[in-house]
């Protein structure tokens, strides 16, 4: 597939037509993989010798955290595409992905707190990872609020794209700053859990499956929401036309 055929999907009509066919499969596959991964992880893996059954929340925590970051990455890429090529589907896809990313961040934070309670004896610690996710959460909130505040669609797309670019740089800066800051407080290493390290295959495999499930879930949700955004946009165009015919 060369690039030109790829850009064809940036046409809203073509996008709707294609996703009409693709979406049911993606959604079905997402449900299947996610269900399999979670059931496998929750019921068919042994308890950790140290952490007991609390470790099983990892099958929600790690994939949602992964998608929280990847959703922002996807928004960054689609924003760049909008700025460079001005494909409207791209801007709308970024808009569609933001609430999904926000919810993923929230899931990661909540499951982190629920996991942290028995493990660290506290719901919240200013651990660099947790703090970074809290900051990411704020970035998502601001991005969504900016989209909501501006009436003109193209203006909103331009402004949010630039915010996403600038925000990405600052999010990265914050990540390093937070690492530095936490070191400065002389905590962290004892508290921070490095998931995925030295994990046995019995735990790893279901984790991979539920990660794939989360990726598919994210793709399905973003496709669905992008379709909604395209239709909402179409509605606004139609209303504007009607108003003009009566003017």
């Amino acid at each position: 597939m060369n690039l030109n055929t790829l850009w064809e999907y940036a046409n809203p009509k073509k996008f709707i037509q294609t996703t009409d066919r693709v979406l049911p499969w993606v959604a079905g596959l997402a449900a299947l993989t996610l269900g399999a991964g979670l059931v496998w992880g929750f019921f068919f893996t042994p308890d950790d010798y140290r952490q007991g059954s609390t470790v099983k929340i990892i099958y929600l925590h790690v994939p949602s955290a992964l998608m929280a970051i990847n959703a922002w990455l996807m928004m960054l890429i689609t924003s760049l595409v909008w700025i460079v090529r001005r494909h409207h589907v791209s801007a709308l896809a970024a808009r569609a992905a933001a609430p999904v990313g926000l919810v993923m961040t929230l899931i990661a934070l909540l499951t982190g707190a629920i996991w942290g309670q028995p493990m660290w004896g506290t719901w919240w610690a200013w651990d660099p990872r947790l703090t970074s996710f809290l900051i990411l959460f704020l970035f998502y909130l601001g991005y969504i609020a900016l989209w909501a505040a501006i009436e003109n669609d193209d203006t909103a797309a331009d402004l949010t794209s630039i915010l996403c670019l600038v925000g990405s740089v600052f999010a990265l800066l914050s990540r390093y700053a937070v690492n530095f800051w936490n070191q400065g407080l002389h905590q962290g290493a004892s508290l921070s859990v490095a998931p995925g390290e030295r994990m046995a295959m019995t735990f790893k495999l279901p984790l991979y499956v539920s990660m794939a499930g989360f990726v598919l879930l994210f793709v399905a949700l973003v496709l669905m929401r992008t379709r909604t955004e395209i239709r909402a946009r179409r509605l606004r165009v139609l209303i504007a036309r009607q108003r003009m015919e009566h003017a």
């Binding site: 046409n11 809203p12 009509k13 409207h88 395209i230 946009r233 179409r234 165009v237 139609l238 036309r241 003009m244 015919e245």
Partner: peptide, 15 residues
């Protein structure tokens, strides 16, 4: 005064 209904090809492509 504009008679054309679509602002540009993209709004048209939404229909």
């Amino acid at each position: 005064r504009a008679r054309a209904l679509a602002t540009d090809d993209f709004d048209g492509s939404f229909l």
